[in-house]
């Protein structure tokens, strides 16, 4: 049985689907491009400065437990600065904080950081404070590398650099731990933070 000739003119439903698909494409592209800016450059600089001060204070700690406590306090302060940096940047580029790329970046950071928290407790209980710098750098580096995977190239590069420092810290003598932490969390974060701030909108 012969089929009736098909009309080449688009139907309203086809047009609607195409228009909706285009709107989805625009939204998706804007979200992915927005994730470029979710990583806070100035927030990173502030976190780096906190790490340098915290590292200097920790280097004067009387025992390994106090040293760990000083670093954890610095991490808490740095975390607040990091969140404020993300919030400020989200507001500045008018991207939603609670469902946009900023949230995705934070959620991706969360898993390796949670693993780091568990390992910190375990290593502290067994007295293996010497392993903490390597573990912290390695897991924070992993968090930054994965969280920044869809971001500008500089973010995963920072993550990989931190991971490499973590490997060095695990292989190096325990006395290198504090300087390596200051190098990674302080100097590297400040350097990369300044570059992100200058090139990618703050």
């Amino acid at each position: 049985m012969p089929h009736p000739p098909r009309s080449t003119r688009p139907e309203p439903d086809d047009l609607k689907e195409k228009a909706i698909e285009s709107i989805r494409f625009i939204r998706g592209t804007m979200e992915r491009a927005g994730s470029f800016t979710a990583v806070p450059g100035w927030g990173g600089v502030a976190m780096g400065v906190v790490a340098l001060i915290g590292g200097w204070i920790a280097s004067r700690a009387p025992n390994p437990h106090a040293w760990m406590r000083d670093w954890l306090a610095s991490a808490a302060v740095a975390f607040i600065f990091g969140c404020l940096g993300i919030a400020w940047k989200s507001l500045r580029v008018e991207t939603p904080l609670i469902r946009g790329p900023a949230l995705r970046f934070l959620l991706t950071l969360a898993a390796p950081l949670a693993a780091g928290a568990v390992l910190t407790v375990t290593l502290a209980r067994t007295g293996r404070y010497d392993l903490l710098p390597g573990v912290w750098l390695l897991l924070y580096g992993t968090a930054v590398a994965t969280g920044g995977a869809s971001s500008v190239r500089i973010v995963p590069i920072l993550g990989v650099c931190l991971m490499l420092l973590g490997v060095v810290a695990l292989a190096a003598p325990a006395s290198w731990g504090n300087p390596l932490l200051m190098l990674g969390f302080g100097v590297l974060q400040i350097g990369f933070g300044l570059t992100i701030a200058r090139r990618h909108g703050g």
Binding site: F25, A33, F36, T37, V93, G201
Partner: peptide
């Protein structure tokens, strides 16, 4: 469209 959308966001 991708170029324009991306630059509109960042």
């Amino acid at each position: 469209l991708g170029i324009v959308s991306a630059l509109a966001a960042n």
